[in-house]
Design a binder for these strands. Sequence first.
DNA 1: CAGAATCCCATTCGATACTG
DNA 2: CAGTATCGAATGGGATTCTG
Lengths: 230, 230
Amino acid sequence: MKLRKETANPDASAGALHGRWYRDACGTAFALEVIGERWSLLVVRELMLGALRFSDIRAGLPSISAKVLTERLAGLERAGVLRRRRLDPPVAVQVYELTEWGYLAEPLIQELGRWAARSPLHDPTLPLSPVAFMLSLRTMLDDHASLDCDIGFVIAGQTFRARLAGGDMPVTREPVDGAGAVFRAPDAALLAARFYGDVPPRALPGLVIEGDVDLAQRFVGLFALPPKAG
Amino acid sequence: MKLRKETANPDASAGALHGRWYRDACGTAFALEVIGERWSLLVVRELMLGALRFSDIRAGLPSISAKVLTERLAGLERAGVLRRRRLDPPVAVQVYELTEWGYLAEPLIQELGRWAARSPLHDPTLPLSPVAFMLSLRTMLDDHASLDCDIGFVIAGQTFRARLAGGDMPVTREPVDGAGAVFRAPDAALLAARFYGDVPPRALPGLVIEGDVDLAQRFVGLFALPPKAG
DNA sequence: CAGAATCCCATTCGATACTG
DNA sequence: CAGTATCGAATGGGATTCTG
């Protein structure tokens, strides 16, 4: 009875501000106040490879509604995870981009992915956004990869570039001109089958590899899912 | 219209099973289906240092309701994160314990805590469970700690033991007899102030250090919060 | 104490329509 | 395209009660 009003915090409308749910000083709890709302972390995921417009985010998250996306963007902005920015006059469009702190959430997204992959239950046959796939490559890259290369990706019309050097592999949104090899696929699930499944390359119609095919093969060999937990 | 019925999955009642929310093959999304419901991950956190009874979990999570805890336990059990177990006849009590996969969630909890600590906003003055504090020590331990020691903790009546050796520091629920030093405090927040705040030891009434006080001092020096992000 | 069952209000969400 | 406004339906969750 006495605690009711504290819960219904007036300024907590639709927000990801702290203190609303858990009343717990633990950092984990604080993080969950910020990105623990449904969809929040997936919105962050979509922005992890660079700023995006409202509808580009929706494209990567086909089943989020405009209302929820609007609410999450507002909450994440207030929490300091992202900011909205107007591009300069010639294009005059609004984009959402992660703050410095927001970009620091990548290890967290990776850790979730790694943990999920070890589940005895995870069966991945659903759609996958291009960004989700590119991030998964960063997560599943063999720690001891000694290859250095520059690989292009064209997935559902979006282009990315992965530059592997010294065991590190930054991924950018960039044209693929000049890459050592290029993977082209109409959707990310196809690429996931190639990189993580036991599927032989020719069994994947729609997947095209250009440039140094042998390099592409060796590149694929650098990625593997972790073993399942008992 | 045509998709409505798929959403209202009959067996998805109150559960953390996959496919209900995101329809996304990304591992991060799958993990969020499992532990992304409110409270779920904090329940896992409470169990991270060993099996617990229903009311012990509630003690660590004072503002969760019995109903919600029941639902979360059921969901996490179905998802394979924890199992319920009846102890052998003499005690005949029921406990919840993480599965092997459940225990693998610790890095994930740590990553959330680490990220939260780097937030420009995080101000930790709320209550903290003993388990949350002990886990935070494992998270914030200096990577290059070269000290080897055996430290006991008595927090709000619960006893723990941290054995630091070779940079690794397992924490168990155990009596503190024979530890090199023992910290006693009526609540975890007091210990957090000592380990992470700039508070001089004598400004913390209620905190008692027994055994090798000098060792205890050096031990405290091994823990630090990461720098804030801009 | 450990939970299941019930009741009921508050929040959330998705669909749709609307606006600059 | 980038949202906002509204509404009805589903869900969430607190309080209470009941049982072993």
